[in-house]
Simulated assay, not measured.
Amino acid sequence: GRMAREAALWLLLLFSAHLLLRRASAIDRGQFPPPTSFLFGTSTSAYQIEGGYLEGKKGLSNWDVYTHKQGTIEDGSNGDIAADHYHRYMEDIELMHSLGVNSYRFSIAWTRILPRGRFGHVNPDGVAFYNAIINALLHKGIQPFVTIFHYDIPHELEERYGGWLSPEIQKDFGYFAEVCFKMFGDRVKFWVTMNQPNLLAKFAYMNGWFPPGHCSKPYGNCAFGNSSIEPYIVGHNMILSHANAVSIYRNNYQVSGPYNSW
């Protein structure tokens, strides 16, 4: 009967969990290559963990504005506080160290470094924040992997020229990337230009789920957008922005060696 089937299923689940735990307990660091050639790591993105969205002279990002518009987020939540990493990063780094990881991939909030993109100044408070994180990581023996762009751009760029829909974004992204290379490249040897750009093109400009919330039928019912065209324009600008940042790095900042990579 039904009760017997449920009991059998629970026994199967418990047995499977037991086997997984036994296998996991049999794994140790010695079964992997040495730390010089194999890294264990953790990964985050700025908007999802930092909070402190109005602190340290940070500018408003597209996500700050989007999540504060009624109806854009189903449960009304936002990243104003998130995991409060902005205030608790030392605790978080200590947690990573306690796990035994030797790498950490995080993103830099564009608006902490350049609150207005290339139309404003470099924010020393934002630079100091990421310097503190990078130095604390290295002190714990954790290699920093930096993602330059993880979906958050200065809101001003959306207002000025439409963000990723305009070729102007290529100039802004190159400028932002170069500021990061200048400020942090003496210690950061692993760089990622963009996190999953294909998903940004799809979710922001085809489905309308991410800011700026563009879409058209049959993909969605947004106030603005064209799901058949805009994702390709955005993808084109992201590819060229990536190529520009890579060129800037390789021509001006990369030093040959085992820890200078993309």
Rank of each mutant, 00 (worst) to 15 (best):
F181A: 08
V192Y: 00
G185Y: 11
Y205C: 11
C180W: 01
K202W: 08
L200F: 09
M206G: 01
A177H: 12
N195D: 14
R187L: 01
N207T: 01
F181H: 12
E178G: 03
R187S: 06
L200K: 00
F184G: 13
P211S: 06
G208I: 05
F184T: 09
F210G: 09
M194C: 05
A204W: 02
V179W: 07
P197Y: 14
L200R: 00
V188L: 09
F181L: 11
Y205Q: 10
M206P: 02
K202C: 04
F181M: 05
A177E: 01
P211H: 00
V179Q: 11
F210Q: 08
V188Q: 07
K182S: 14
M206E: 14
L199T: 14
K202I: 15
F210H: 14
A177D: 05
V179N: 06
G208K: 00
K202G: 00
T193D: 13
W191R: 01
V192S: 11
T193K: 10
G185F: 12
G185P: 05
F181K: 05
F190Y: 14
F176Q: 09
V188W: 05
P211L: 07
M183G: 01
W209N: 02
T193E: 06
Q196G: 03
N198H: 12
V192D: 10
V192W: 00
G185A: 12
E178N: 04
N195K: 06
F210R: 04
G185Q: 05
V179E: 11
V188C: 08
V179K: 07
R187W: 00
C180D: 06
F203E: 15
A204G: 05
T193G: 10
E178R: 13
L200S: 07
N195W: 03
R187P: 07
L200Y: 12
T193H: 14
F210D: 05
K189G: 15
Y205I: 13
W209G: 00
A177F: 06
M194Y: 13
M194E: 11
R187D: 08
L200M: 10
K189L: 04
V179R: 07
F184M: 08
G208T: 02
K189I: 06
F203G: 02
M194F: 15
N207G: 00
C180F: 03
F203A: 08
N207V: 01
K189E: 12
T193L: 11
Q196L: 10
L200A: 04
A204E: 01
F184P: 13
P211M: 01
V179S: 06
F176R: 03
F184L: 03
E178D: 11
M206L: 11
V179D: 02
M206H: 08
M194A: 02
G208F: 10
F203Y: 12
